[in-house]
């Protein structure tokens, strides 16, 4: 297990989350605890949805591009590439922010209200600005194998191109690479979500408010009580004697900040360990 650093860091992450959870159950007041649990749960669920949608979007667009390229459909291929490059040209944080504003408007208008719709919609917006990395990876893998006898030997046996690409190249020979990309996608999703939620929470306008969006770690961090908790950490620099109070009286903000940092650090370590183990 010690050699499998990715698995070790996953266990570390789960263990830390559990320990923090138990500590919070013991020492954090019930309403705040509920908020933290909901915020953490929502962040994880939305990030997992981003991972799923990124995989589906990436795989579908890769197949579309490959089909258009194979069919020598230059105009179709150019049009799709242009659209993708247009999305690529928008900075991720800006794209997601605009998407979130649109969702908030829909929530305020009452067009959407249930989390069953809001969560996938938020995840879709985020994955729209992430999935191109997946497309690049998949196309790179396909192009690599297309240059080898591997691809030609299967083609001349009458094996369909669809099976060669989907099963032999992407599933059998690239799933490790794809999974590694999905791990980092999860990390990017957590980071983007928290950044955008934080920006929205500090207030863009009277209409676009975090009040309208599901609670996440980012929006919790922007709340006034969490901010005070974070300021308390700074306070301990000049008053070290206050440090004991941090873990009992400022738990909401400290927990949120700690969970964010630990989650991002662990995902980074898991991804590195996974790459190392599979020699990617």
């Amino acid at each position: 297990m010690l050699k499998k650093k990715d698995q070790l860091w996953f266990i570390v992450w789960v263990a830390v989350v559990l320990i923090v959870g138990i500590w919070d159950i013991l020492f954090l007041n019930k309403p705040a605890l509920r908020k933290v649990v909901t915020g953490f749960g929502n962040t994880v669920i939305i990030s997992l949805l981003v991972v799923m949608i990124t995989l589906i979007q990436g795989w579908c667009i890769t197949l579309c591009l490959n089909t258009l390229q194979g069919a020598k459909n230059k105009s179709g291929y150019l049009f799709l590439t242009f659209l993708l490059n247009l999305v690529r040209s928008i900075p991720q944080i800006v794209g997601v922010l605009i998407g979130y504003i649109a969702v908030t408007f829909l929530i305020v208008k009452g067009t959407i209200s249930t989390n069953l719709v809001i969560f996938p919609l938020l995840a879709f917006i985020m994955s729209t600005f992430i999935f191109l990395e997946m497309v690049d990876l998949m196309r790179e893998r396909i192009d690599h194998y297309k240059k080898l006898d591997f691809y030609h030997a299967m083609l001349v046996c009458g094996i369909s191109e669809g099976r060669i690409i989907n099963f032999d190249i992407l599933w059998k020979n690239s799933r490790i690479h794809i999974f590694n990309k999905l791990i980092s996608t999860f990390g990017v999703a957590v980071f983007l979500q928290c950044s955008v939620d934080f920006i929205i929470s500090v207030g863009l306008s009277t209409d676009v408010s975090a009040v309208n969006l599901p609670i996440t770690l980012g929006s919790l961090l922007a709340k006034i009580d969490s901010k005070q908790d974070i300021l308390a950490i700074g306070h301990t620099l000049t008053n070290p004697g206050y440090i004991g109070h941090i873990f009992f009286e400022h738990l909401q903000g400290v927990t949120v900040a700690f969970l964010l940092v630990v989650t991002l650090l662990c995902i980074f370590k898991i991804s590195n360990g996974y790459s190392e183990r599979h020699r990617l």
Binding site: D149, L155, G158, K172
Partner: peptide, 26 residues
């Protein structure tokens, strides 16, 4: 034309290096 009429239907080819021609992960 080869894709629709020949490969696997009328013609087949065994490539020189099995290591490159086979899917080693399958």
């Amino acid at each position: 034309f080869w894709y629709t009429k020949l490969w696997g239907k009328k013609t087949g080819m065994v490539f020189q290096h099995a290591d490159e021609a086979l899917n080693l992960q399958a």
